[in-house]
Design a protein around this nucleic acid. Sequence first.
DNA 1: AATTTGACTTATG
DNA 2: CCATAAGCCAAAT
Length: 105
Amino acid sequence: MLKCPDIPSTAAFRDAVYSIVASIPRGKVMNYGQIADLVDAPGHARLVGHVLSGAPPIYPCHRVVNSVGRTVPGWRQQRELLEQEGVGFKPNGHVDMKTFRWSPQ
DNA sequence: AATTTGACTTATG
DNA sequence: CCATAAGCCAAAT
């Protein structure tokens, strides 16, 4: 996968994040920390979130949730989108990460 | 340059 | 579902 020698908001970093997000299969989700790790920038989970906040809507950013499976604050529709794809939510309102978290082959 | 803010994480209650 | 706390790091103010 693309690696960014530099760390922060470079085109490479953003491109890598977009690439990862675009590769999340339908019906699965990923959390920010995992993406950060995949782009060779461990600890930059918050940056991933920041990048996604400015990402073009062409990417399935609704498949990215936080580590406990919580949906994006302020984006109520995200849950509907995920449920529509087959992602199951636990009774507590969080995604069942145990089942729907996607890991790269 | 210092402080605040946030699409984070883990833990605890 | 929410609240709090400590740790974390880059961006915005």
